[in-house]
Computed example of a mutant assay.
Amino acid sequence: MPGPTDLPVIDTLIGFPTEGSAQYDFIRRQTKDAASKASHMPAEYMFTDVPTASPTSDPVSITLHEMDRFGVEKGMVHVNGEVAARAVTDHPDRFLPAGVVSDPNDVMGTVRALRQQYEEHGIRATTVFPAGTFPQVAIDAPQMYPVYATCVELGIPIFVCAGVPGPRVPYEVQEVGRIDRVMFDFPDLVFVTRHGCEPWEELAVKLMLKWSNLYYSTSAFAPKYYPKAIVDYANSRGADKVIYAGYFPAGMSLERIFRDLPSVPFRDEVWPKFLHGNAARVLGLDG
């Protein structure tokens, strides 16, 4: 059986290096501590060796180069900017477009934007960072229900940050228990968690056992920090439910991730599903 560094990879969270820190202004506007206001990235205290960009470099070429180095066949990117839109247009075989729910407080504007992203870019999924919305909108808030309904109608999954967020903002909106009501009300919704679900990773496992369309992705975690409950679940009943996601360039280099991956104690039969098969199925690439 090939090892994890020998298998094709679909990365369900990758991006492009950018100069400056304007992309994090949406978080800074709701933080109150001085460190967050002054930092390049409001959660940088959690990461080391964050990749940086050169002003003369082409960000798409940089990401493609890193993908080629580490066998990343396809990467899912958020098409909420010119660089990502260009990448999915110029390299449709490498980049998978995903939408972004930036302000669910604007309910109908969000639904219209989601449909527009689907029509213009053919998005394979959308994503939301509940703790990063402003005012914050909880996973199970009424404002999110039209988004979930639209995802079901379009046949696309939604990737949702869950658990205590890295930026110094309140966490209640991302409590993992909130997912239960959403899955009950939307049995056809494909829901993928992002950013760890900590400290409720064991609850996340219980909910994945309960709900067939609930998945977990490993974004923003170095492989050596994958929660034990998630690794154990993937090695038992959850081999089809745990999906690889990186965090390049927001928090980690692919070099760091793929250097650590072989130390994750997944069973041999889990690796192809974790790195490729589960994402291909959830994103509709396997048919």
Rank of each mutant, 00 (worst) to 15 (best):
V9N: 08
R28P: 10
Y247L: 11
I243G: 06
A34S: 15
R69A: 15
W200C: 02
N235A: 12
H78C: 09
F47A: 13
K224H: 11
P97W: 02
D180E: 14
G163R: 01
D260A: 11
F191R: 01
A239L: 10
W271Q: 04
L203R: 13
A125P: 08
S54Q: 05
K206A: 14
N278Q: 04
T18N: 08
R29C: 13
V101Y: 00
F266T: 12
V72R: 06
L96V: 06
Y225A: 13
V231R: 01
E73I: 05
S236V: 09
P223W: 06
P187T: 12
G284Q: 07
G15D: 07
K37I: 12
G81I: 01
L207G: 03
S54W: 06
P51I: 07
V192R: 00
A22M: 07
I257R: 05
P135N: 02
V100R: 01
H78Q: 07
E172M: 03
A22Y: 06
E66G: 03
D90C: 07
G71P: 06
E201A: 14
A125G: 13
V173F: 00
P142L: 10
G71E: 06
R267Q: 15
G155H: 04
F16K: 00
P130N: 05
T56W: 04
K32N: 11
A222C: 06
V100C: 01
P8W: 13
D106R: 05
D49L: 08
V77D: 01
V282F: 05
F129D: 08
A22L: 06
A220F: 10
G109R: 03
P223D: 07
Q23T: 10
V72M: 05
K206W: 12
F184L: 10
A220P: 00
W211Y: 15
R181L: 12
Q143Y: 07
S217F: 01
P272Y: 00
C161R: 04
P157V: 12
Y216V: 11
A87E: 04
T218S: 15
V160E: 10
S102A: 13
E19S: 05
P51R: 05
P249L: 10
V83P: 09
L7A: 05
Q30H: 12
S219N: 10
R94P: 08
V205T: 06
A222V: 07
R281D: 12
K224V: 11
R28A: 01
L96I: 15
T218G: 03
R124L: 14
S263G: 10
A245L: 05
T110S: 15
A34H: 11
